[in-house]
Nucleic acid binder design. Structure first.
Lengths: 264, 264
DNA sequence: AAAATAGTGTCTATGAGACACTATAGT
DNA sequence: ACTATAGTGTCTCATAGACACTATTTT
C-alpha cells in the first residue's frame, strides 16, 4: 500500500515524520518505523475439499488448546514474515495434510475484530481441491478428521456451512470457520458453472457419469444427463483416452481425462 | 528492513465457549506470546470505479514520498488494530475520496513479499462503485486525480490494467496497484453478467440505453440492444418510474430505477 | 435372458441476435 | 417534414431438457 506518514490511525496518535526537506530514498527507508503501530497477526486457513460417496468432504483438525479447545478448525497457520500468502497456504497443506501440488486458490480475507479472542488475527482463507484417492493417501497431522459438509442453503445463496462426522454427529468449528467454509462452498458452486474445476476432484481418468456425480455433489442438486454430457464434451476440456471401464456389472463407459492435465 | 513489531500480549482474558478450568486457561494465555513472531502490516486499498463519457474511470492519488515518489496509488490506508477490514475500506473512501455509502466489496488480498520495499505489507483490496454525479460532488484529498482505465485484454482474461489522464498521458501506478486494478476490472466484468451492479454506476433514475452504455463501457465491447433490453426487463431488478426523459432532441425514453434502491 | 448403465438421435422449449417496423420527441 | 432514438414484433439460430431407442457388459 501507501504513504505511511499520511495514514490516519483511528486509535493512536501517529508519530509525526518531518516532511520538510526532500530526502533520498535510502534515508527515507532508514527512517521508516514499522513499530509505530500495533500490527495484527496474519494467518492463512485452508478449506480442503474432496468428494466421495456422493458427499462433499473437508478436513478439520481438533484444537488441543484454548481458545475453542476441543472444537474443530480448518487447517491453518501464521504467514511467515517473508513468505507469500500462497506459499503459506501450500505449507499448511504440506504440514497439516501431507499434500502438495493441489488446485489452490485464494477465497477471501476474514478480519472481524474479536474473531480470535486472543488478539487481532486477520485470516486469508484459501480453498483447495483434491481427488479422493490422494485425500486418503497420506498421514495427517494429529487430530485431523475428514468430515462431511452440510450446507443448509440452496444454490449460491450463501451462509454458514457445517461439518459432521461419519455418524452424523456435529463437529463444531472454532472461530468463524463455519462462515469461511460456507463462503468456500459458495465459491466452488459458482466456479463449477463456468470453469472445469470438477476435474480436480477426480483422479487422472474418469467416466462422464463420475464427473457428473461430482458436479451434482458440489452443487447439491441433480443434473440432466444428456445436457451435462453434451456440455462437457463441447467444452473442449475433456480428452477421450480410448480405454474403457472394467470390472463393472454393466456396459463399461469410456474413460476421459482432463485436457490440460497431461497436455504438456 | 525488518518489521520489528513490538505488539505485546493479548489484552484481556477471553471468555471462550469452551468450558475449561480457570487454571488451565490462565496457563494457556500466559504461554501465548503474540510478540514471538514479527507481524506484517495490513492495509486496505480501494479501487473506486465510475463510468462517464463511455470510459471506465478510477481515482488515484499522487505519492508525495518515497517509495514510488511521484507515482500514483490507489486510495488506501492501514487497518486499525480494532477496526474491521470493511470499516477500514469505508474510512479510506471517506477520508481520501469524501464518499460514503457506496457499493463496496472485498476483492482479494495481495501479499507478495517485496511488493512494498519498506517492509512486509499485506494489502486487502476492495472495489467500490459510484455514480458519476456523486463522483464529482466532493473535494478529494490532495493530489487525487480521476484517471481513465486502460484494459489491454479482452473479456475476463485478466492481467494488469493501466491508468491515463485526460491527455492520454500514463499515470504509472505504485507497488502492485496495476495488478490490483486489473483484478478489479476482471471482477466487475464477471459480476456484471449475473448481478445488477451496473445500477450502482448510475444515478437514481436512468434510461435503458444509459444502463446499456454503462455495461458496454465496463465490458469493453458492444451489446445487442434488443436482447439487453429484454434481459434487463426480465431480470426483475428494474422498476419503471412512469417519468420520461426531457430535453433530448429525439423521442424521450422512460426512466427506470433499481428495484431495491427504494423498495424499502 | 435379465439387469444395468453407456451412448445416440430427435423433438421441443427457451433465450439471444438480427432486423424490420412504428412511435414520438426536437428542430 | 426531417432526424434521431424509443420501443415492439417476429424470424432464426443455438442450447438445454426430455425422452425414446440402441449398445454392451456382467450375472
Amino acid at each position: 500500500m501507501l504513504c505511511v506518514d499520511k495514514m490516519v490511525d483511528p486509535k493512536k496518535t501517529p508519530k509525526t515524520t518531518e516532511p520538510a526537506s526532500p530526502r533520498e530514498e535510502a534515508e527515507f527507508l532508514a527512517s521508516y518505523d514499522a513499530a509505530a503501530y500495533p500490527h495484527p497477526s496474519v494467518t492463512v486457513d485452508v478449506v480442503l475439499f474432496s468428494v466421495s460417496g456422493g458427499e462433499l468432504r473437508t478436513l478439520v483438525i481438533r484444537r488441543a488448546d484454548h481458545p475453542f479447545k476441543g472444537a474443530w478448525a480448518l487447517p491453518g497457520g501464521f504467514c511467515g514474515i517473508d513468505e507469500s500468502l500462497d506459499a503459506a497456504a501450500e505449507r499448511v497443506l504440506r504440514q497439516k495434510c501431507s499434500l502438495s501440488d493441489l488446485y489452490l486458490e485464494q477465497l477471501a480475507t476474514f478480519g472481524r475484530p474479536g474473531r480470535d479472542p486472543r488478539t487481532r488475527v486477520i485470516s486469508v482463507a484459501y480453498y483447495a481441491l483434491v481427488d479422493i484417492a490422494r485425500f486418503h493417501e497420506h498421514e495427517r497431522s494429529a487430530g485431523a478428521e475428514v468430515g462431511r459438509v452440510v450446507v443448509p442453503w440452496q444454490g449460491e445463496a450463501g451462509g454458514m456451512a457445517h461439518v459432521v462426522d461419519a455418524n452424523n454427529e456435529p463437529l463444531p468449528l472454532a472461530f468463524d470457520h463455519e462462515e469461511i467454509l460456507g463462503a468456500a462452498v459458495k465459491r466452488i458452486r459458482g466456479k463449477l458453472n463456468y470453469t472445469p474445476i470438477g476435474f480436480q476432484l477426480l483422479g487422472e481418468r474418469f467416466t462422464l457419469l463420475e464427473l457428473q456425480q461430482v458436479h451434482e455433489t458440489v452443487l447439491g442438486h441433480a443434473l440432466n444427463k444428456d445436457s451435462f454430457r453434451r456440455r462437457m464434451l463441447a467444452s473442449g476440456e475433456l480428452r477421450a483416452t480410448g480405454h474403457m471401464q472394467s470390472g463393472v456389472d454393466h456396459r463399461p463407459a469410456e474413460l476421459y481425462r482432463f485436457a490440460t492435465k497431461s497436455a504438456v
